[in-house]
């Protein structure tokens, strides 16, 4: 009750409201190609938020995020098509299975850090790729596996628009969860670990538990994203979850802004839409993308989220406050 009393309608709330209304209303004016892209944006938001919790907030490197996504995608699809579970049960279960693997991977992270941890996650990625190709009875192997769209209240969400709204709801839920986590004691423990493990330890923080939680959360978000991805595309194959996919999520959170939910959101949207906008460059698409990315990083090294405070500063003429995000730089 007391919280309600202190709640005030600020311009930020207004902007968020407008965005939400746009997210709900705008797709009605477009076709299935755009619904599909918008859904991909949302799925990438969910997955990027997870990685950002792990890397941006807790400071742990992972280059096997695409493996967690794969586990969620294959897990959910398998539970639906072979076990016969409802999608709405299978999806969280896929996330939980991914989280279990995240937990398992978290243990080496208790002893390793930096590059050494990165190499272990790379090994995990290789292993998951090998398992997908070598277990064709479960995963369809290199031939890939078809996935179906779920039904809601008796209606199959066959159209991309109806599925978009479902994904939108799940994304909002994911954003809310991540927001609550960051503002909880666990979230503050993430920050402490990132800034200095030894300081965190002297403050009697349960270091290992916090690290394991970070890995589990990241894997869970990726698993949910993966499950939705499989159902949206309708077909999954191992190539879709390779190293480049992991790298793409790292690019997303760096471009958006490390340790920031808004950063994950804008980064995911920007990097999902950009390659589509560059379609006219044909075979030069990736080249142009690389040049744009490099130029962006040189000009705006702290990510898209650092732009707004800077503009606001310019407008109000203040110069004292540092962009809040800069402190995340040290946390590798």
């Amino acid at each position: 009750m007391s919280e309600q009393a202190s709640w005030k309608f600020t311009p930020t709330h207004f902007a968020l409201g407008v965005l939400l209304i746009l997210a709900i209303a705008a797709p009605l004016a477009f076709g299935s190609y755009h619904h599909y892209l918008a859904s991909l944006c949302l799925i990438n938001i969910i997955i990027a938020i997870g990685l950002n919790l792990l890397t941006g907030n807790a400071g742990q490197i992972s280059i096997c995020h695409s493996s967690f996504m794969a586990i969620g995608a294959y897990g959910t699809t398998y539970l639906v098509s072979k076990v016969g579970l409802s999608f709405w049960v299978a999806l969280p279960m896929g996330g939980i299975i991914a989280a279990m693997f995240g937990l398992a991977l978290g243990f080496p992270a208790l002893r390793l850090r930096g590059f050494y941890l990165a190499v272990v996650t790379l090994g995990f990625l290789e292993m998951s790729q090998l398992l997908i190709t070598e277990l064709p009875s479960i995963t369809g192997g290199v031939r890939g596996m078809p996935a179906s769209r779920p039904a809601l209240f008796g209606y199959t969400l066959a159209s991309d628009l109806s599925f978009y709204y479902v994904i939108l709801a799940i994304t909002l839920l994911a954003i809310w969860c991540a927001y609550s986590i960051i503002n909880s004691p666990t979230g503050r423990a993430f920050d402490a670990i990132r800034n200095s493990e030894s300081v965190a330890q002297t403050l009697a923080m349960p270091l290992s538990r916090v690290k394991l939680i970070a890995f589990m959360l990241a894997a869970f978000f990726a698993g949910i994203g993966g499950g939705l991805f499989a159902s949206l595309v309708g077909f999954i194959d191992p190539l879709e979850f390779g190293l480049w996919t992991s790298v793409r999520y790292i690019i997303i959170i760096v471009v958006g802004g490390l340790g920031s939910i808004v950063g994950s959101v804008v980064g995911a949207v920007a990097l999902t839409v950009l390659p589509e906008l560059l379609r006219d460059f044909k075979e030069y698409n990736e080249l142009v993308f690389g040049v744009l990315l490099l130029a962006f990083l040189i000009l705006i090294p702290h990510g898209l989220v650092s732009v707004v405070p800077r503009i606001r500063q310019r407008l109000s003429g203040k110069t004292n406050s540092q962009p809040a995000i800069s402190k995340h730089g040290a946390g590798v």
Binding site: I250, L258, V332
Partner: peptide, 14 residues
């Protein structure tokens, strides 16, 4: 930030 530099080298590679 360190990550920015790493991603920049990725971009150079690309």
């Amino acid at each position: 930030p360190h990550f920015t530099v790493v991603v920049a080298t990725l971009a150079i590679g690309l």
